[in-house]
Design a protein around this nucleic acid. Structure first.
Length: 476
RNA sequence: GCCCCUAUUGUCUAGUGGUUAGGACGCAGCCCUUUCAAGGCUAAAACCAGGGUUCGAAUCCCUGUAGGGGCACCA
């Protein structure tokens, strides 16, 4: 049984990197009918951000990553919140102490901080407390100094592990530092808690970012010290900006929620993020979450970092939007129509804009001209390709206005047929007739839909008003 | 500074010793057309460098270079 977990700390929102990690963990589990769990890593008491927990739940829900076990869904491996598991970590830390794989360290925080400031960090540095005798330890303990517990790393030798994506990775033990396992406040560090919990929760595949590559040998040593079988390690490539620079909160690391606010569909975001560092081995690029679950193959995850391209996300979003049923699209679009637009036939509007919408947030500006005719220059009437000039536009508008005045019924079809007949009778190219109409009633070079579709939407009265305005402009 | 990882068009990628180096985004052009899109077609665009190994390297090895990650009582 494959069991994976998403283990965020409640310190903020879910940005793309986290989303991708969670997604891969989900896909690996679900592809083979396994379990995906949520574990909250709140072992830093100072960094717990209020509301972050809700954001985590909300993001997972948005993305459709339904977990099988979690804080609010007991699967028998709980609790799923690390701050509720403190005694467990204590117990295992004591075990390491007893086995000699850990030791008490009484050096204050301050001493270490000074070292850091004075020189470059030295990997693999050994603390003096490492060689304290039993008696010295007891004495310090008796003094009431709150110690931390550090991992004891062998002085020599090599620690290697196998990453499912990267293969064999090895480190010389002398370069590994003796990290803190248990802090002086009794809380475990991430480095300790994740090993304990992954084992206790029977996580079969640990999915995380490549930033953990150099910490992993230390985890490996921990597994060995306990005599535990390490999980399959899956270190995902990092996601960077398109220019290869690091993604930061300041620059280009949007959260899922922000992207949704920008008008991206969660399915499209999930689809896009899935393709960042993975591919199905076929030319297919558009996938639903279910389809991803079907085809996801852990062996096809890449090694090198992937650049996040908003352009490609937008395209993919457009693909997903076009794939929606007209009804489904309309339901989504509804939230983006400005209040003042509601007097128009919105379902009809939605049909027109669906194929041209890349982001839902484009809807307001795409449709603004309906509510208010933009100010435009009469040069708009000139278009070579449509054989439209100032003169032809004036003539056509003049002749067309009476034909449209009070046309019954007022529909796209009726207007279109009327104009087509007019063009044929008067020897105009259809484009030459449509151009001035569309220009006059929209005031724009480009509109969602052609002249007659827009006229239909605007209604007879507003169409006539705008046509007259256009004609005046041409006669001035 | 030390350790580790990575390296195919601008970007995402296919490729696992023999290919005209394939696809997608973006860009440009054409077609279609009631404008703009969408759709169709076409073009430009890549194997980081240098050494090996081999009859033959994008593919294997080494070195260099570049980018990234790590070195917290953060995760």
């Amino acid at each position: 049984m494959i069991r994976t977990r998403y283990a965020p700390s409640p310190t903020g929102f879910m940005h793309v990197g986290n989303l991708r990690t969670a997604l891969y963990a989900y896909l690996i589990a679900k592809h083979s009918g396994g379990k995906f769990l949520l574990r909250i890593e709140d072992t830093d008491r100072r960094r717990n951000v209020p509301g972050a927990l809700d954001a985590i739940y909300n993001s997972l829900q948005l993305a459709g990553l339904i977990y099988d076990e979690g804080p609010d869904k007991d699967g028998g491996y709980g609790p799923y919140v690390q701050s509720l598991r403190l005694p467990l970590y204590q117990q295992y830390a004591q075990e390491l102490l007893a086995k000699g794989h850990a030791y008490y360290c009484f050096c204050g925080k301050e001493e270490h901080q000074q070292e850091e400031e004075s020189e470059m960090p030295v990997a693999g540095e050994r603390d003096i407390c490492r060689s304290l005798s039993q008696e010295e330890v007891q004495a310090k303990l008796a003094e009431g100094i709150a110690p931390v517990i550090r991992q004891r790393i062998p002085d020599s030798g090599i620690t290697a592990y196998r990453d499912h994506i990267l293969g064999e990775i090895s480190f010389e033990n002398k370069f590994l530092d003796e990290q803190i396992l248990l802090k002086s406040d009794g809380y475990p560090t991430y480095n300790f808690a994740n090993v304990i919990d992954d084992h206790l929760m029977e996580i079969s595949h640990v999915v995380r970012g490549q930033e953990y590559i150099s910490s992993t040998p230390k985890y490996q040593l921990l597994y060995e010290a306990f005599g535990w079988q390490p999980p399959v390690l899956v270190h995902c490539p990092l996601i960077v900006n398109e220019d290869g620079s690091k993604m930061s909160k300041r620059k280009g690391a949007p959260t899922l929620e922000q992207m949704v606010e920008m008008g991206y569909l969660p399915e499209a975001i999930v689809n896009y993020v899935a393709m960042l560092g993975w591919n199905p081995g076929t030319d297919q690029e558009i996938f639903s979450l279910d389809e991803l679950t079907q085809v996801f193959n852990i062996d096809r995850i890449n090694k090198s970092p992937a650049g996040f391209s908003m352009d490609k996300l937008s395209w993919m979003n457009g693909e997903h939007i076009r794939g929606l049923s007209p009804e489904a699209f309309h339901q989504l679009a509804l939230a983006w129509y400005p209040e003042a637009l509601k007097r128009f036939d919105l379902p009809k509007m939605s049909k027109l804009i669906q194929v041209r919408t890349e982001r839902l947030s484009d809807i307001p500006k795409m449709t603004a001209f309906l509510m208010e005719l933009p100010i435009y220059d009469k040069a708009l009437f000139v278009n070579e390709k449509s054989k439209s000039s100032l003169e032809s536009s004036r003539e056509i508008l003049l002749k067309v206005i009476p034909l449209l005045e009070g046309l019954e019924p007022w529909s796209n079809e009726s207007i279109y047929l009327q104009m087509k007949a007019f063009a044929a009778e008067n020897g105009f190219k259809l484009g030459a007739v449509m151009w001035p109409i569309r220009s006059a009633i929209s005031g724009l070079e480009a509109t969602p839909g052609g002249a007659t579709e827009i006229a239909d939407l605007l209604g007879n009265a507003e169409t006539m008003r705008r046509l007259h305005l256009g004609l005046e402009k041409l006669q001035a």
